[in-house]
Amino acid sequence: MKTSDSSDDIAADGPFVSPREVVADRPVRRRPAGPKYGDRLFILLSRGAASLVVVLLGGVLVALALGALPAFREFGPGFIWEDRWSPAKDVFGAAAPIYGTLVTSVIAMVIAVPLSFGIAIFLTELCPASLRRPIGIAIELLAGIPSIIYGLWGFFVLAPIMQSTIQPVLIGTLGNLPGIGVLFKGAPYGVGMLTAGVVLAIMALPFITAVTRDVFATVPAMLRESAYGVGMTTWEVVRYIVIPYCRTGLVGGIMLGLGRALGETMAVTFVIGNSHRIAASLMAPATTISASIANEFTEATTPLYTASLIALGLILSVITFLVLGLAKWMIQRSGVH
């Protein structure tokens, strides 16, 4: 009786210790001295490689801060809200690029979030099982297409369509409304913040969709089935069960898309129009932080010009690192690793 008890204990212990912990907790240091240098060296090397990632991220911030120092010394914190950008007079301010970055990213999110949620709902609730994988991969391939290709496509295909069809319609309808009409006034240039926002939306879409799908999958089947059991429609299950259950993860997915959109460079550079002017209309040419750097960095003639562009880069990395960190934290908390 006693022996069976103790063997029960062992059996009860067994399954609850994850194998990973068994390996991780193996007390290497407590072993008697022996030929364990191989292990120590190997672990040291691999941990060294892992800390390189941390060092790189810190290095980016430090190097950019040092490079940006002349600009902040000259203009002070006012650099951030100064809206003049005049290489000829050596006066620089970040307001216009920051404004363009934020506005294009917001436009992108307004378009991409409902589309991504729609695709995720389709894939998890509606799609026949045999089509789920091919459609899912096709959407993910959108994330694989390089940013410069989106730029080419946006400039040569999308911008003409925007100019000839979509923007005139927006100007004719929304442009006449009081209040928000200001955003849709002016000439249809084709290139500008709206077109950049549309391209960014397409680029952020696969990332938001992927996270949304993953967090939708964390909803316990029992909850879903109970909801159907009490007679909810598919939409009601999504609206009242699935979305509330994974709210944090969904916001994390949106933040991830936002982080991507804020820092996107080449695609925006093609379609933003490159103008350091803050205009009310969404259809006006503008610039973003990343587009300014990509366009002007090799042409920067004075040290202050270069430092100002690096300062823009510093502002961008601080914003995106915060947004991405928050995104990662929220996605992790929602049970998707």
């Binding site: 990632v53 790189l56 991220l57 980016v60 950019l64 490079g67 940013s147 991830l256 982080g259 991507r260 804020l262 820092g263 996107e264 460079t265 990343s290 750097i293 990509a294 960095f297 562009l309 690096i310 880069g313 961008l316 990395s317 995106t320 690192f321 991405l324 960190g325 990662k328």
Partner: peptide, 12 residues
């Protein structure tokens, strides 16, 4: 975070 960091910043 580094995985999604803007590539232009890496260039800088």
């Amino acid at each position: 975070v580094l995985l999604s960091a803007p590539s232009i910043v890496i260039g800088l």
